[in-house]
């Protein structure tokens, strides 16, 4: 079992080396004529005003939170799917209850308008 992850490890090493090699090759093959104007931040030809790292809307944070909760739910569901053939009907009802509680959460979000993207 571990040796299979060995393949993943070697593949990940190769998957890092390929883009690094390509970028390094491009760096040396391409011309190098640095220019202060060229290296400026691109903003449709206008000089940048103010800081890039402006404050963002809280909506993004909310989406992240909802995603986290559903992610955890999914992780609990997958082992149940693997064990599904051996489960009794009542165990399946327990799993269904788990999902139903989270559907309630989704409808709560919906009612409160957290899913609107204004």
């Amino acid at each position: 079992m571990l040796s299979q992850w060995g393949f993943v490890l070697i593949l990940s090493a190769i998957a890092v080396i390929i883009p690094v090699a390509a970028i390094v090759l491009g760096h040396f093959l391409g011309p190098r004529r640095p220019d202060p104007v060229k290296n400026e931040t691109y903003e449709s030809g206008v000089e940048t005003i103010g800081d890039t790292w402006v404050q963002f809307r809280a909506q993004y944070y909310l989406i992240g939170l909802i995603f986290l909760i559903f992610d955890v739910e999914v992780i609990f569901l997958f082992p149940i799917a693997v064990a599904y053939q051996n489960l009794s009907f009542f165990s399946v009802i327990a799993a269904v209850t788990f999902v139903v509680i989270l559907i309630l959460g989704l409808f709560l979000e919906w009612r409160k308008g957290a899913l609107e993207w204004s």
Binding site: V16, G26, G30, R32, N39, E40
Partner: peptide, 25 residues
Amino acid sequence: LSKEDIKPTSADTPSYLIAPVLSVM
């Protein structure tokens, strides 16, 4: 491959350089 490798002066070097590698990986 033959294009100039431009890095904006104000870019945050580590995250700017690692991002393309990570996306391919």
